[in-house]
C-alpha cells in the first residue's frame, strides 16, 4: 500500500526553466505536510502536478494510491484542492457554490444538501451561507474555498498558500480549521506556504523547496536542531561574571554576546536550560536575566540556501 502522496524524481520544465527539479516526496496517512519556499521556488508547479493539472516532464507521482498520469481520473475523485486565488464566482452564494461543487463530484442531491450544511457549519459560515460571495471578507472566502475542497470527503487535501493575503486573525482561524480536519477526520493535508510561522504551526513535517529542489526535509523541531544548538544568554552581577562563565562553559561552546552577558550554544538543546540554571544556583550565582533563542525555520532556510526567507537580506 502506497502512502497518500509519493513522488519519485518528479520534474517539470518550462522551456529552459526548470521549475521543479527531481523532487522525492513521501507523505504518510494523516500527516500535515508543509511545503515551504519563497515565491517562484516551484511550490505551485509541484502541487499542480500532484493534482493532475500539469503533466510532469519526467518522474512519477502517486496520490491516494493512484498514479497521477496513468490514472488521473481516480486521483481526482480522491483529492480536494484549494488553489491559490480561489476561483469563486462573486455572484453566487456560498451555499450555491457548495452545491455546484457537489454536482461536479457527482454527489447525489439529497446527500449533497446535508453535506453542504455540515460543511458551512464546519467552516463557520452557516449564517453567511445564503449571502453572495461578493460580500464575503478574504478570510470567509478562504474558508468557503476550504469547504468547497471537502464536499466529496477527499482522502488527501491540497492547500496552495491557503492564507496568503489574509489578516493575522483570519490566518489563525484557518489554521484551526485545518488542524480540526486533520485531527477529527484524519485527512492527509499537503500545504504550500511561504510563511515560516504557518509551516511551523501547522505542519508535522516540512520540506523546504528552493529553485525546484528540496533542500531540507523533516519535522520543524528536528530541522531547527540540525542547524545548531539553541543560544542561551544569561545576565549576572559583575562580581559573578567569571564564575558564571566558567560554569556555563561546561554546557556548551561560548557564543558572542554583549558586554556583561554570557552566551553559549546549549549542547543539550532546549531542555538543557534547567540544568544550567541549577548549576548556577548551586554556585550561589544570582541570575538576573535569561534568554533562550531557538533557531527558527528561517535559520534552517538560510543554512540550506544561504538566503533568508523573511526580510529578503542574505544571511
Amino acid at each position: 500500500m502506497r502512502n497518500p502522496i509519493e513522488a519519485k524524481e518528479l520534474s517539470r520544465t518550462f522551456g529552459d526553466l526548470v521549475a521543479v527539479d527531481g523532487i522525492n516526496l513521501s507523505v504518510a496517512k494523516g500527516e500535515v505536510f508543509g511545503f515551504l519556499g519563497p515565491n517562484g521556488a516551484g511550490k505551485s508547479t509541484a502541487v499542480r502536478m500532484l493534482t493532475t493539472l500539469l503533466k510532469p516532464t519526467s518522474g512519477q507521482a502517486w496520490v491516494a494510491g493512484h498514479n497521477v498520469m496513468s490514472s488521473a481520473g481516480a486521483v481526482r475523485k480522491r483529492i480536494g484542492v484549494a488553489l491559490q486565488d480561489a476561483a469563486i464566482d462573486p455572484l453566487m452564494t456560498g451555499n450555491e457554490l457548495l452545491k455546484l461543487q457537489s454536482v461536479l463530484h457527482g454527489i447525489p442531491k439529497r446527500k449533497a444538501r446535508a453535506r453542504c450544511g455540515e460543511l458551512l457549519e464546519t467552516v463557520g459560515l452557516t449564517a453567511a451561507g445564503d449571502r453572495r460571495v461578493g460580500t464575503y471578507s478574504g478570510g470567509m472566502r478562504r474558508r468557503l474555498d476550504l469547504a468547497l475542497s471537502l464536499v466529496h470527503e477527499p482522502e488527501v487535501l491540497f492547500l496552495d498558500e491557503p492564507t496568503t493575503g489574509l489578516d493575522p486573525t483570519s490566518r489563525v482561524a484557518l489554521w484551526d480549521e485545518v488542524r480540526k480536519l486533520n485531527q477529527e477526520i484524519g485527512t492527509t493535508v499537503f500545504l504550500t506556504t511561504q510563511y515560516l510561522e504557518e509551516a511551523d504551526q501547522l505542519a508535522q513535517r516540512i520540506a523546504i523547496i528552493d529553485e525546484g529542489r528540496i533542500v531540507r526535509e523533516g519535522s520543524p523541531s528536528v530541522l531547527k536542531n540540525q542547524v545548531g544548538a539553541p543560544t542561551l544568554r544569561v545576565d549576572v552581577w559583575e562580581k559573578d561574571y567569571n564564575a558564571a562563565k566558567a560554569t556555563m562553559a561546561h554546557f556548551g561552546e561560548e557564543r558572542p554576546a554583549r558586554k556583561g552577558r554570557i552566551a553559549i550554544g546549549l549542547n543539550a538543546g532546549t531542555r538543557g536550560i534547567t540544568v544550567v540554571l541549577k548549576a548556577l544556583e548551586d554556585k550561589s550565582i544570582e541570575v538576573q536575566h535569561v534568554e533562550l533563542d531557538e533557531p527558527s525555520l528561517d535559520d534552517v532556510f538560510a543554512d540550506a540556501t544561504g538566503r533568508r526567507l523573511e526580510g529578503g537580506e542574505s544571511a
Partner: peptide, 16 residues
C-alpha cells in the same frame, strides 16, 4: 473568464 480566474482548474481537478 473561467480560465483567467482559474475556475477551469477547479473543474479540471474534479472528476468532471
Amino acid at each position: 473568464g473561467d480560465i483567467e480566474n482559474s475556475f477551469m482548474d477547479r473543474l479540471l481537478s474534479s472528476p468532471v
